[in-house]
Design a protein around this nucleic acid. Sequence first.
DNA 1: GGGCCGATGAGCAAGAAAAAGGGCGAGAAG
DNA 2: CTTCTCGCCCTTTTTCTTGCTCATCGGCCC
Lengths: 164, 164
Amino acid sequence: MSKKKGEKKSKSGKKKDLAALSAADLAPAITQAARSVRTALSRSISDSGLYAGQDGVILALSEDDGQTPGQLALRLGVKAPTMTRTIGRMEAQGFVERRADGHDGRLTKVHLTENGLRSVESIGQSVADCGAMAVKGFSEKEVRTLLKLLRAVEHNLQPETGED
Amino acid sequence: MSKKKGEKKSKSGKKKDLAALSAADLAPAITQAARSVRTALSRSISDSGLYAGQDGVILALSEDDGQTPGQLALRLGVKAPTMTRTIGRMEAQGFVERRADGHDGRLTKVHLTENGLRSVESIGQSVADCGAMAVKGFSEKEVRTLLKLLRAVEHNLQPETGED
DNA sequence: GGGCCGATGAGCAAGAAAAAGGGCGAGAAG
DNA sequence: CTTCTCGCCCTTTTTCTTGCTCATCGGCCC
């Protein structure tokens, strides 16, 4: 049983492997960075009594109240069933409420409650605070670059939104 | 940057909010990018019969076999309980096995099985493949920049490692 | 009435926090 | 110097949430 199948698996003369190595490091890097962000954000907003992933719903609703679960899911980049469950929990927590749409029986409109409305400011503050901590020591240009690259990555990974 | 955010909470109009706006957008951007990466990676490695999050264990073990759960957790940036359960599942799946350390009864060494060893290559390939797809259209410099910024973000968010 | 779209339910897994179980080592006491 | 106990470290267990995929139900439009 050979313990290592060759210490450096990409040393075979192709310079393309150089880029491949960086690319291979990217998935773990994004994953870990996201975990750090998620954890930090989770602690920041735990004061408001909600969990990571719920903040986006509050903020999205604060900009456009009465969105449907599908719209929220699309906006926040999660799948519809996930949004349904998150909304259900937030409804139980008293942050949002569901109302049936009068015109279209299929639709469910999600609205912020008084309580949810009150939490908007602190949520936005927490998110901004977390983001500020994440980019501490960054120049403004670096922040913008990171944002741009992140969105490009996200776009590249879309299964069926644009082409292919 | 024509966000409609200024009107709602204009309790104190600071121009500093310009940079803060970018920072506030960073958390969602990282989260979504990470979700995309996770989903894409999940599909890539599902052929090998394992789930997102398990790939790191295989790769880490392929470099240094016989690590403890704590070491793996630290290396992969997850908490110890998460690693314990992941290892347990991977053990049930037949990819790794636990062995007691002879010198220290508290320690558990995790080793790759034959099956796990065989999957190393395809896992590495999947991760590299996914990373390559994520940075499609990027220049090599951009990839490196993204990597650098991502690691800086991760470092900034460490609860108590280095500074605060 | 049939197809389509939107919301929801069930099942599986990752990740975090809190807490429990067990072994090792160091320091105190005899 | 020997022994015993206490504290610390590592692992594991439990509980909560998010997120995905597959499947189902219900209402709208053609």
